[in-house]
Design a protein around this nucleic acid. Structure first.
Lengths: 263, 263
DNA sequence: CGTACCTTTGACGGCTGTCAAAGGAAGTGG
DNA sequence: CCACTTCCTTTGACAGCCGTCAAAGGTACG
């Protein structure tokens, strides 16, 4: 079902209605589509930035290991996300990237992103938007991580993931896929797997949710949102702030002509 | 001294050597330069995104207040930074922005950023780079915030700020400007002002550094970096990863012609 | 059936928040 | 120049969240 359109297209279509030539352009840039098993390393930390990966199917993450062997998961990527988008202006990847589950990926080279920026302002804006939204996820997790206790952080992440999944396809909150182990949750939220377990046990005892091995079952959505203090404004995909001229290509052209005298 | 060139220019010049017409273009977009006192609100959380601010002089921050009245400072902006760059594809500002010290700012409208993207791929890349670097600061603080204790977090932030200041102008580590109060440090790092005080007192007792009201005095730089476990790769401004074609305009044109057949 | 990974449990200790209060430092108005 | 306010810093007692260490039981997979 998700394969009827490429991931790069659906990624951009979150923000814009694409025209035929834009679809063609994106289609040419997206290469090397293939199936990869979980734990596949997409790149290592410190390696040269050559290409980014587009997640078609499955979950991925970026992470860094510190000297003590602790791992910090930075981002969790879901189908339609571009892995490493924030890296393409850097000479090297700052964090490693790996698959969390089996999945399907394709590639886009940094060069092609450069080309995209040269030839399509509209797609460039969509790229900006995609990057800004990934950044917002990190910012939000920062705010959660330093101000909320483990219970609230966990609840917040569960709601965030469900909200993101729900944008991709209708996903009942009552039960949805969730392939992260308790250790991974710890690495993501900055907790030990022991404490993650304690908090999950407590949430289950309070009849809020139960995490199974590969999915999460939510008993009480209202209580969950209460604990999470979730505000989904930061997951907004609309580009209203940029005005019509970016959404509607004809208006964009008129506007461009009108204002190009500034140059 | 910093006024011989506009802040927007110096921001872009971190990444590219600008040509005359690019400077002209940026100059026209930068408006409303003015002096603002500390604590000036640049925008409120939730307000519509209309323009961004370019910091010419002074320090600023973005922040969010939660329901309990706690404040989380998201970013600290220094001269040459664009305040709210990550917001311009959103309809509304997610976080408020305010001056931390007296300073000088100018404006660029979201519309003009849209225009910039339409007319100058090179400047667009620089804009991407600037945004990616701001994101990296947040990512790094996330990693610090959840994995390190208060002592290490504080040391890390001090080194980060000094490194950033040092890029703007040679700044001796032994003593440099630092206008944040202990409460603000707490809001930034997710600690109470009481605990910030304890840790600062300890760092002073250990002869590492002393925070004065408006500056920081570093006694032992090596020990400080040790505590901070600082890796400055994430503050790298080079665009090597993008190849010559973005740095050198002539090569860019050739490359563009060569590859435009992809379209 | 064995190995690797994941989950669960318990005891203990420390980092950090909370609450409360008081002492500087800077700016303002009289 | 002094009184007053406001913000910033400092200190102490106490409690709790969460990390550490250790071990055992489950579950999937070959």
């Amino acid at each position: 079902m998700k394969h009827q359109t490429s991931a790069l297209l659906s990624c951009m279509e979150r923000f814009l209605v694409l025209e035929a030539d834009e679809k063609r352009l994106l289609g040419k840039m997206e290469t090397g589509q293939r199936w990869v098993p979980r734990q596949t390393l997409l790149w290592e930390a410190g390696s040269e930035v050559e290409r980014l990966f587009i997640l078609q199917e499955g979950w991925a993450c970026t992470y860094r290991d510190d000297v003590d062997g602790n791992r910090q998961i930075m981002d969790v990527l879901l189908p339609g996300d571009i892995v490493g988008l924030q890296d393409f202006t850097f000479p090297r990847h700052f964090a490693a990237a790996a698959m969390l589950t089996d999945g399907e990926v394709s590639c886009i080279s940094s060069q092609d992103i450069g080309h995209l920026i040269h030839v399509s302002p509209r797609l460039t804006i969509a790229l900006f938007a995609a990057m800004a939204r990934q950044e917002t996820l990190v910012t939000e997790r920062l705010a959660m991580g330093v101000h909320r206790d483990a219970r609230s952080r966990l609840a917040h992440f569960v709601v965030e993931i469900h909200t993101r999944l729900n944008k991709l396809a209708q996903t009942p909150l009552a039960s949805f896929e969730f392939p992260l182990s308790q250790s991974m949750l710890g690495q993501l939220l900055g907790l030990t797997h022991v404490h993650v377990n304690r908090v999950l046990a407590q949430l289950e005892a309070d009849k809020v949710l139960k995490k199974h091995r590969h999915h999460i079952e939510v008993f009480d959505a209202r209580k969950l949102r209460e604990i999470a203090e979730f505000d989904d404004a930061y997951l907004d995909d609309s580009l209203d702030g940029l005005g019509d001229y970016l959404v509607n290509r004809e208006k964009a052209r008129l506007w461009e002509e009108k204002t190009s005298s500034v140059r």
